[in-house]
Simulated scan of single mutants.
Amino acid sequence: MKLDFEKTGGLVPAVIQDDLTGQVLMLGYMNQEALDKTQQEGVVTFFSRTKNRLWTKGETSGNFLDVVSIAEDCDNDTLLIKVKPNGPTCHTGSTSCFGEEKVAKRAAAIRFIAQLEEVIQERKVNPAEGSYTNFLFKKGVNKIAQKVGEEAVETVIDAVAGELDTMKGEAADLLYHLLVLLAATGLELKDVVGVLEERHKK
């Protein structure tokens, strides 16, 4: 990485982006020392212009930003850092310093679904004792498919009856078992989303 720190007075802007959702979380500044520390520790550290020192995001709140990737722009004077945030990024408690709480809530929901799928895929490769997910995998595709059908019917029944509180639980069960079924058949959620994207283009 050949950043031109002198071009911008010793500091370069660092745009922080949620690796999973693509949401821009915040903007900070780094000098060479902050960048080195970030690369070495895998946690975002800025140079705070108000504190006049290195500042690791989350050192007080615990809401650290785990680094996924770091890229420089074409002019070598700006960084794009993709992260996995551990809690809200903004000091106000918002997911992003740019507001967009509706977007943030959707992003958080998407992030959790992706994390859940990761756990399910991990259970498939590395079974855990007492895991319900592994119990389903052992039962096989037919049993998992049956559970998907059962949860779908229960979701429909609650929807028709207007039982929205219990419907949320049934829909959660349906979504979980569908993710397990996808994993059991060698598919991932992105494969399904890909079909939706193609249909959306038509």
Rank of each mutant, 00 (worst) to 15 (best):
T155N: 12
T155M: 11
T155Q: 08
T155K: 09
T155F: 13
T155P: 09
V156F: 12
V156Q: 12
V156M: 14
V156I: 15
V156D: 04
I157A: 12
I157W: 04
I157V: 14
I157C: 06
I157T: 14
D158T: 11
D158V: 00
D158F: 05
A159V: 10
A159W: 13
A159Q: 09
A159P: 03
A159E: 11
A159D: 10
A159S: 13
V160F: 01
V160D: 08
V160C: 08
V160G: 00
V160Q: 14
V160Y: 06
V160I: 15
A161H: 13
A161M: 12
A161Q: 15
A161I: 08
A161E: 15
A161N: 15
A161D: 15
A161G: 08
G162D: 03
G162P: 06
G162T: 08
G162M: 06
G162H: 11
G162Q: 10
G162C: 05
E163F: 05
E163N: 15
E163G: 02
E163R: 15
E163T: 09
E163C: 04
E163I: 07
L164E: 08
L164Y: 13
L164P: 00
L164A: 04
L164C: 00
L164V: 09
D165Q: 09
D165L: 06
D165C: 00
D165K: 13
D165R: 10
T166W: 06
T166L: 04
T166K: 10
T166M: 07
T166Q: 06
T166S: 10
T166H: 08
T166V: 06
M167D: 01
M167K: 14
M167C: 14
M167H: 10
M167I: 02
K168M: 08
K168R: 11
K168S: 07
G169W: 05
G169R: 04
G169I: 04
G169L: 09
E170W: 03
E170N: 05
E170H: 15
E170P: 01
A171C: 07
A171S: 10
A171F: 12
A171I: 04
A171L: 15
A172F: 07
A172C: 09
A172M: 06
A172H: 09
D173A: 06
D173R: 09
D173I: 08
D173W: 09
D173S: 14
L174V: 04
L174C: 08
L174S: 07
L175M: 14
L175W: 02
Y176S: 05
Y176K: 07
Y176M: 08
Y176V: 09
Y176H: 10
Y176Q: 14
H177G: 00
H177I: 01
H177A: 03
H177Q: 05
L178Q: 00
L178G: 00
L178I: 03
L178A: 08
L179R: 02
L179K: 07
V180F: 03
V180K: 02
V180M: 03
V180P: 02
L181Y: 03
L181A: 11
L181T: 06
L182K: 01
L182G: 04
L182R: 07
L182D: 02
A183N: 04
A183D: 03
A183E: 05
A183T: 15
A183Y: 02
A183C: 10
A183L: 03
A184G: 05
T185R: 12
T185Q: 11
T185V: 07
G186H: 05
G186D: 13
G186W: 13
L187R: 13
L187H: 11
E188G: 08
E188A: 12
E188V: 12
